[in-house]
Amino acid sequence: MESKRQVPNNIALVTGASSPRDIGTAICRKFASQGLSIFFTYWKADPAWIEEFQQTITNMGVRCESLEIDLSNPNAAYEILDSVETKVRFPSILINNAAHSKSDGYLHLDAQTLDHHYAVNMRSTFLLCVEFARRFEKSDLDTGRIINLTSGQDLGPMPGELAYAATKGAISAFTRSLSQELAPLGITVNAVNPGPTDSTWMTDEIREQLLPKFPMGRIGLPEDVAQTIAFLASEEAKWITGQIINSEGGFIRG
């Protein structure tokens, strides 16, 4: 049986767990294995799978609740936190994993594409972070964790993904600045760049192209990301804040 790490609290809020191969789904499983209750959000998922997944988490001996929500809704952050407080109670761990991605490039980039990426990747993430902090300050908790997902935009270009690269890259800057504001509250704020991960977006053709760039001989898995995030959420990581963790398995860019 896997040993459990000490965690600041026993409730984790995870956005973007909509299919069996999602990074968000792997994070939920990892946290549940450590005894944390789970509240996750999803969008346009198979209702039968959502029910099955919730039962799987519940069978691990923890509570599991969920909410279907469109994160492009300006009020999504408030609705999510209202829901988790009503269905479970206020969490001490927030994982901003959900993202919007649609290929563009300079020939196709337009206002609508930018707005869609901004609404999910930036606005929902940023509002969830600050509203979490405001409610945390009124709670009886003394330790909290915010972990955002980014995609390595600081490390190299992403041609054909201008809106995605720009909006996900903003998360890094936001994370660093927010960490300074929230440190006095006992909340650490970090981001994780997992590199190319074999989740819902990867095809056989993409795998074939990427595999030679991984010196460890395999492509990253959602479970790899979950391990890193579980550490940052643990008591052992209480002195780590304002960091962008590039956990890419030695991925060679270019």
Rank of each mutant, 00 (worst) to 15 (best):
R21Q: 09
S33W: 01
W239Q: 15
P8C: 11
G250C: 04
A226E: 04
V14Q: 08
W49N: 11
E68Y: 01
P212C: 08
G144H: 06
S18H: 07
N59T: 14
S177D: 07
E85D: 02
L81E: 04
G249S: 10
F174C: 04
K44E: 09
D115R: 14
F40D: 01
I252S: 10
H117E: 10
K4F: 07
E2G: 11
R5T: 12
T197S: 12
M216H: 12
D46I: 01
A183K: 11
D110T: 02
Q227P: 00
I187F: 08
H108L: 13
I187Q: 04
G169W: 04
A233T: 03
D142V: 07
I23K: 13
P222E: 03
A237L: 05
T228S: 15
L81R: 01
E85N: 07
G217E: 12
D110M: 10
I206T: 05
I206K: 12
E161H: 03
L178W: 06
V7K: 05
W43Y: 06
L162H: 04
S66L: 03
A191F: 02
I27L: 06
S3L: 15
I244E: 12
A183F: 01
R253C: 11
T58A: 13
N59A: 14
F174K: 02
G160C: 07
F53L: 02
P215N: 13
E181I: 05
D104I: 03
I95Q: 03
T125C: 08
V7Y: 15
Q6I: 15
I23H: 06
P194Y: 06
L127P: 06
H116E: 14
E68Q: 12
F251L: 02
R145T: 05
L182E: 01
N75L: 14
L109V: 15
P8Y: 03
N246H: 15
R123T: 06
R218Q: 10
F231H: 09
D154I: 13
T197K: 04
D82E: 00
P215D: 11
D115H: 13
Q55H: 11
S92G: 15
S139C: 08
I252L: 15
W239K: 14
G250H: 02
K213L: 11
F136D: 00
A163L: 02
